[in-house]
Amino acid sequence: MIEVEHLTKSYGQARAVNDISFEVNKGEILGFLGPNGAGKTTTMRVLTGYLPATSGTARIAGFDVFEQSMEVRKRIGYLPETPPLYPEMTVENYLTFVARIKGVTAGDIAKRLEEALRMANITDKRNELIKRLSRGYKQRVGIAQSIVHNPDVVILDEPTVGLDPNQIKEVRHLIKGLAGEHTIILSTHILTEVEMTCDRVVIINKGKIVAVDTTENLTQQLKGGERVQVQVKGPLETIRNVLDSIEGVRNIELDTLDSADVVGATIESEEGTDLRAQIASKIVGRGLDLLELRAIKLSLEDIFMQLTTEEKPVAEPGPSPAVKEAEPSTDESLSEVSPR
């Protein structure tokens, strides 16, 4: 549904997004995890057609986000970091307006309006002025706005930031409810959020993708386990057989690298085992060329820790309580995860 290839976005000399590639399948919820300033918002803005990419391509439902922007815009719903609301309008008038500019036909507007109100669970607030709503309800109106035209893809930029724990729970529940029908990308800097709502995760830092993984793998990683990454020259099937024959291997991921006959493999094993010697001897024993072998030490939590601690010096100069309030979740969310 969404294909991003070698996407780069520079602002002058600074590269906000640096050569990132990923895909999102239909009906999937993809989490975009990274500290503030990692390039999440920029990537989303490129996907929505708000910003043009410096190089690389992004396609949504087969349409290029820059060349066929109008086609893409019809198919996406977008909730920016601050919900784009008109405080002086009522919820119903606002959603009707959005439906109109999103190209919903006059006959369908009433139906779509009801649907969006129902899905965002704000039917009882339909006649209220938006400025009188609480933060949580405003966020829901923002989500309703992003689905009112029944788009294929919904892009949510930090949908739970600034909400209280109950509201966060509700919004996450709401997002899960959208999956299946819609393909969803959501960005966050909260690890738990990804775990609870997303099928797959892209971790991004300083404009580069650090890791792409399923949420199960991520959770598994957090529980421990060892990983070895190898690059082998040779036919894929043979390599698979060789690796399969090693004892203690829990999971193998193979993929062919740029040059056709080099295979990259990630081998997972039980916690506390070290298979490096075995892997090397088996591969070499079969007459294959071992090009690279290294243990991957960083768990995703480590990676995330690293990202967030790197972030800290940036936040330090202004130790105002407002900054802390704006991102209450990084430390909390980690402590939520780590006890296991």
Partner: peptide, 9 residues
């Protein structure tokens, strides 16, 4: 208000 971003997307 950030609504410009919505209009432009």
């Amino acid at each position: 208000r950030g609504t410009m971003e919505m209009l432009m997307t």
